[in-house]
């Protein structure tokens, strides 16, 4: 379990990701990036999908990356990373690596590059079993192009392509369960994490990179512009997503679901919605009925997850018991 001191020492030794990038003031994305990169022991190679992170960290001729970094396009980060990882295996086998030794291949892609346009490449890479850690920084919309809805955008959120208006309460559809989709690929490690819970995220990265196969971590990452909150509230709002059970922290190890951090008490979903301008229209009297739909959605997903975790826990217990 990496501690903050261990992570800080690693960054002190080698800052894998530098300041001086042009991501927004108070952006959640670099928090996720640093937590991930500082939790990995081996040398790291990063593959990045097109998005805020890529655009704002590599304006030619400068780069914020102090590790090998590759960007090809939007929808193919997992595929490009497959090639890099395969090249590593091929070169290592014939002793032709420039620097020999273990390496960790990390993909960073936003929710658009993961849930939507990059889903096929992700699926292919997972099925082929490349040893990659795929990190989705999920800020729940296409932020790089100006806050358009993605299939990760929650029900009711107002975005520039699902705007709340006289005839609309924002996004009409619920977000897709990307974790379940990824789990269906039978990969060894899948997890959901949040930038607010650094220890949980860091532990997950450590477990993910110890697996012999693909690993996927979906990290809830705030966007002050797209979500409409004061920059300074980023961590507080990410934490509220966890505490309201909108974004439970769990992992799926070899198909077994397990909660990694349960809320001590479950807050009502409005506690998370209220500080964000993208949901403010839901609090208008005419939209109350849509607002009222959200709590049962969250409750149902949370209960399903708890049931799933309980089932898998009893299954592992049963597996441990000696036969009668």
């Amino acid at each position: 379990m990496p501690s903050l001191k261990t992570m800080a020492r690693r960054e002190r030794r080698q800052s894998r990701f530098q300041g001086g990038h042009s991501l927004c003031r108070g952006c959640g994305v670099p928090i996720a990036v640093r937590a991930v990169l500082n939790s990995i022991e081996t040398p790291v190679v990063v593959v990045n999908a097109t998005g805020c992170l890529e655009v704002a960290t590599t304006r030619y001729p400068a780069t914020a990356w102090n590790v090998p970094w590759l960007h090809v396009a939007f929808e193919n980060a997992a595929a490009a990373a497959s090639g890099v990882e395969t090249a590593y295996r091929a070169l290592r086998r014939r002793g032709a690596l420039p620097v020999d030794g273990p390496m960790t291949f990390v993909v960073f892609a936003g929710d658009g590059g993961t849930y939507d346009i990059g889903l096929q490449a992700l699926s292919g890479a997972l099925e082929r079993g490349h040893r990659l850690l795929y990190v989705c920084y999920d800020n729940e919309a296409y932020m790089n192009t100006g806050i358009q809805r993605s299939s990760a955008t929650p029900f009711g959120a107002s975005t520039s392509t699902s705007p709340a208006g006289l005839e609309s309460f924002g996004k009409l559809e619920r977000r897709k369960d990307i974790t379940a989709i990824v789990v269906a690929h039978h990969i060894p490690y899948v997890a959901q994490a949040s930038i607010s819970h650094w220890q949980d995220l860091s532990d997950k990265v450590a477990r993910a990179t110890s697996m012999d196969g693909p690993a996927f971590i979906n990290v809830l990452t705030t966007c002050q512009l797209g979500w409409g909150h004061e920059p300074r509230l980023a961590i507080r709002i990410a934490r509220l997503a966890v505490e309201t059970c909108f974004w439970p922290l769990y992992e799926v190890v070899h198909g077994r679901y397990r909660l990694t951090e349960g809320p001590l008490r479950k807050l009502p979903i409005e506690a998370w919605l209220r500080p964000q301008a993208r949901f403010s229209h839901l609090f208008a009297p005419e939209n109350r009925r849509w607002l009222a739909e959200i709590q049962p959605q969250v409750d149902r997903e949370w209960e399903d997850l708890l049931a799933r975790c309980a089932l898998d826990a009893s299954a592992s217990d049963a597996a441990r018991e000696p036969p009668p």
Partner: peptide, 18 residues
């Protein structure tokens, strides 16, 4: 005078003052 393939040597953003 530009490097082949738009390759950039690592870790140069630190000089950008934000």
């Amino acid at each position: 005078d530009l490097a082949v393939g738009a390759v950039v040597a690592a870790g140069t953003a630190g000089r950008t003052r934000t």
